[in-house]
Design a protein around this nucleic acid. Structure first.
Length: 221
DNA sequence: GCATTAATTGGTC
DNA sequence: GACCAATTAATGC
């Protein structure tokens, strides 16, 4: 979204004010409850956005990859971040301070417009999301989650282009690590899933999708 | 290579 | 389906 505008004349001065820094795998760069420090653009890599829940569990809200932004919810009226974010792979991030961002948006209406579309889209997805979670079986949650991850990060040679821990998959699908492992090994036995160590892959997407009953569309996008 | 983490399996409630 | 314990595999240094 920012990328699309990156060559327009008007925003060049602001781009100089961004702070680019590397973020290694597992490193957390947004802490829930911490004061907002602007918005992050993912220049390279993959990132997860999550929320801590009561015990020691967490819920993964969404994944982001290069070209996308994180921390946009802290922008505007919020004083502190209501989510945490950490890198899933070694990444390169750009931080735009809230001030710079505001000015940039004011001076660049097309960018502002794209931001608006982005927010509207996010809202729509999160509403669609909320409905569908409760009545899914564990197996369906896991299948659904894996499908989404595959769709988002893509697959080469029948293996998904990212390696997530079983815990991350569980946090995303809304189950426990135990359950994820059990579903995965069942799917493996059924020949619906490739698994080599931590790497997973879907050999036959159609067959895999067919495991989901009726009204199941993907999470997010 | 060793030490720490993560994955997996099996069992109990 | 949640929780725990024991074993084994993967990973970091």
């Amino acid at each position: 979204m920012i990328k699309k505008h990156i060559h327009t004349e008007a925003i060049q001065p602001y781009l100089k004010q961004k702070n680019t820094f590397p973020c290694n795998k597992k490193q957390q760069f947004i802490l829930e409850g911490a004061p907002v420090s602007g918005l992050y653009f993912i220049y390279e890599g993959c990132v997860k956005v999550f929320k801590q829940t009561a015990n020691k569990n967490s819920q993964i809200i969404r994944f982001s990859k290069n070209g996308e932004i994180v921390g946009h919810r802290g922008f505007g009226t919020n004083y502190v971040y209501d989510i945490s974010a950490s890198a899933l792979t070694d990444s390169i991030l750009c931080n735009f301070s809230t001030d710079v961002l505001i000015e940039m948006l004011h001076k660049t209406p097309p960018l502002m417009f794209d931001f608006m579309l982005f927010y509207a889209d996010q809202l729509q997805k999160s509403e669609a999301n909320a409905k569908r979670f409760a009545q899914m079986t564990v197996r369906e949650k896991v299948i659904n989650g894996l499908l989404f991850i595959m769709q988002k990060f893509g697959q080469t040679d029948s293996f998904i282009n990212i390696t997530l821990s079983r815990k991350d998959i569980a946090d995303f699908a809304g189950t426990s690590t135990d359950q994820v492992i059990r579903v995965i090994s069942a799917l493996k036995k059924e020949g619906l899933l490739n698994a080599k160590g931590k790497r997973l892959g879907i050999p036959d997407v159609e067959k895999f999708e067919a495991q989901l009953k009726e009204t199941q569309y993907f999470l997010e996008g």
